[in-house]
Each structure stands twice: as C-alpha cells, then as structure tokens.
C-alpha cells in the first residue's frame, strides 16, 4: 500500500503551453533505465536547456525560473498526449509535483498519473486562464486542491471550482490503494471467467 493523498496546498509552476506531449515531458533517450527512480532531473529536458547542456538553462522556461516552485504543475489544454510512457508521470512526481492541473488531459497519461498518485485535476478553460493570469501577476500565489471535496481553490481570491474523479479512483487515492491490489483480489473471478470463455 502506498501513501494516500488528500489536501495539497502549495504554490505552483505555470506552464502555459498547449498539447504538451510526453516526448517533451521526458525525451525518449532518457527511457533507458530499468527502475522507476531518477527521471525528475530530466523532466522537460529539451525545454530546460540549450543544446542539451545543463550549464545553459533556458531562462524563459518556467521550471528554470526561481520564482516558480511548488507541488502543483499547471498546464494548458491536452496535457500528456502522445507516447504511453509512464516515465512522464514518474518524472513529474519525481520532480516533486503531486498535482497537475489542466483543462484537458490525454487518456493514457491520466491513467498513468492516477496509478502513481499524481492527481490530474481537470478544470474549465476559464478557470485555467484565471490561474495563469493570477500567477502572471503574483508568482507566490497558492492553490489548494482538496480531493475529498473534489475542489480546487485560488487561495487569495477564494475562487473555487470542483473537479470530477470516479468514486473508485478517489477511494484508491485517498487510501493509497492500487488497481493491482484490487485485481489480485479478483483472481477467483478472473479464473472463473476464463473457464466460461474457454481459455
């Protein structure tokens, strides 16, 4: 059993770019590991450094900007599209994020995040733009994500929006349960299914 999540209050890193694909989140050449650790340092590698050179960080990239930090990543529409690499979720989690906020997530990325206790929070386009503009004017603004009440709040203004999550996934995340725990406990049903379907 893993550690569950519930209320996360933190400053955030705004990444106002649409269609961020998992090749940007973690480029393929960093997928050669056989364990799950250490991907955080290569998160957004090619957007962070000039010519792959760690001594030359790109100044205008939010993750390199010291005013932005925190446990919440806020990204524009269609975040996590492309490759199914779970390494993308691992890299974000490994870099210290517990929540990703966007107006739209790609399917596989969303599943991968949930399986790694990285909470994907889908907000309306309007609320998302509000968050971006708040962080533009005040980088030390805070957000609060509350899984129990399924809400996200901009602390200074108190503006709140609720988000969707299935009852099943919510229970898993709050309590630290994995899908695999549930599946393993269903072995009997699975074997019965196989018998009935001639496997």
């Amino acid at each position: 059993m893993k550690k569950g999540i519930n209320i996360i209050r933190s400053t955030a890193v705004p990444l106002n770019i649409e269609n961020v694909d998992t090749d940007q989140i973690i480029p393929a050449r960093f997928l050669k590991a056989t364990n799950r650790e250490g991907f955080g340092k290569n998160l957004f590698r090619d957007w962070r450094y000039e010519n792959d050179d760690e001594s030359k960080p790109k100044k205008d990239f939010p993750l390199n900007n010291p005013v932005y930090k925190g446990k919440i990543l806020v990204a524009a529409k269609n975040f996590g599209c492309g490759s199914s690499r779970e390494h993308a979720a691992w890299a974000i989690k490994d870099a210290g994020f517990d929540v990703v906020v966007s107006s739209f997530f790609a399917d596989i990325f969303k599943n991968n995040s949930l399986n790694n206790f990285l909470l994907p929070v889908t907000v309306s386009e309007k609320f998302l733009q509000k968050i971006f503009s708040v962080f533009d004017s005040n980088p030390s603004e805070e957000l609060e994500v509350n899984l129990t009440s399924q809400t996200i709040k901009i602390i200074s203004s108190g503006e709140t929006e609720s988000f969707d999550i299935t009852h099943y996934k919510k229970t898993c995340l709050l309590n630290g349960y994995d899908d695999i725990d549930y599946l393993l406990s269903s072995k009997e049903d699975i074997t019965k299914y196989e018998l009935e379907n001639k496997f």
Binding site: E86, I108, N111, N115, N116, D179, I180, L183
Partner: peptide, 9 residues
C-alpha cells in the same frame, strides 16, 4: 496502449 503500472497488472 497502457502504462507500465498497467503492464504489471
């Protein structure tokens, strides 16, 4: 397509 946690499942 699935992620690695799902491959494990």
């Amino acid at each position: 397509g699935i992620g690695t946690s799902e491959v494990e499942m």
